[in-house]
Amino acid sequence: MNIIIGLINGMITSATPILLAALGGSLTYYAGIFNIAMEGMMLGGAFFGMLGSYYFHSWPMGILFAILGAILMALIFILFAVVLKMDEFITGIGLNLFSVGATTYMLRQIFKVKGAFSSPEIVPIPKIDIPWIKDIPVVGEIISGQNLIVYLTLLATIVVSYLVFKTRFGLRLRAAGYNRTSLDTSGVSANRIRVWSLILCGVLCGLAGSFLSLGYVTLFSEGMSAGRGWISLAAVILVSGNPTGIALISLLFGFTDGLGLFMQRSLPSQFTSMVPYVATLIALFVYSVRLKKKQTI
C-alpha cells in the first residue's frame, strides 16, 4: 500500500510542472503560435522564484517573482516574434538559450557560485493539509498534504479549460489560431490576443518554475528545467491542445517518472532517468500510428 501511495504522490509531483507549462502551451497553441519557449520561461521562473524567496524570506514573493521572471521571458518572445515578426521557431530556440545563459550568468554574478545555489534562507512553498480529509486513510495521504502549487495546478486546468471553451476571450483565442484574418476583419486584433496568450503562458510557466526551485527542493541549478518544457510541448501536440487531455498525458508522464524512480532498485539510475523521455517517444509513436489509421479510413 505504501508503495502505491508513494507512486501516486511521485506521479503528481513530476506531473505538476509539466502540466502547468503544457497548459501555457495549450493557450498559445490555440492562438496559433508555434511556441517552443516553455523551457526557457520555466527556467527563468525557477531562477527568479528562488531569488524572490531568498531576498524577501517569503514564498509568496517567490511565486510572484517567478511569475514576473517568466513574463519577462514571454515579453522578449513577444518583442521578437510578434512585434518584429521573427520566425517563431528561431525566437523560441534563441530565447531558451538566452534563458540558460542569463540564469547562469546571474547565478554567478549575484551568488558567486557555479552549478547550483542552495541556502536555508530560501523559503519553500508550503504543503497544505486539508482538515477532515487528511485523517481519511490512504485517500487522505494523496488528496491532502500536497504542495500548494499542486492545488493551483488543478485549479489552473479547470480555469484554462473554461477560458478556452466557454468565454469570449477563448473564442477569440481559437479564432486567432484558426483564421487570424477573419478575426482581424471582425475588429479584434489577432496580435493582441496572441500577446495575451503568451503572457498567460508566462504566468503558468512561472508557476511551474517556482515549483521546481521552491517546491520539494529549495535550490536553483543550471538548466534545472531539464527538458520538461520539451515534454510539455510534446504533450500539447499529442492532444492538439485540449487542456483535459493535457492533464491526462502529464499524469501519464509523471507516472512513468515515478516508475523510473521505483525501478532504480534493479537498474542503474541512468537508465531509469531516461524513462520519461522514452515514454514521450512511445506516446508520439502511438499518436502517429493512430493518425495514420484515421487517414487510411
Binding site: 527538458g227 520539451w230 523521455y277 508520439l284
Partner: peptide, 15 residues
Amino acid sequence: FNMSEFITTLMLNMI
C-alpha cells in the same frame, strides 16, 4: 511512423 523529428531528436538528446 511519420513521427516528427523535431521532438524525437530532442528526446534522443536526453537519452
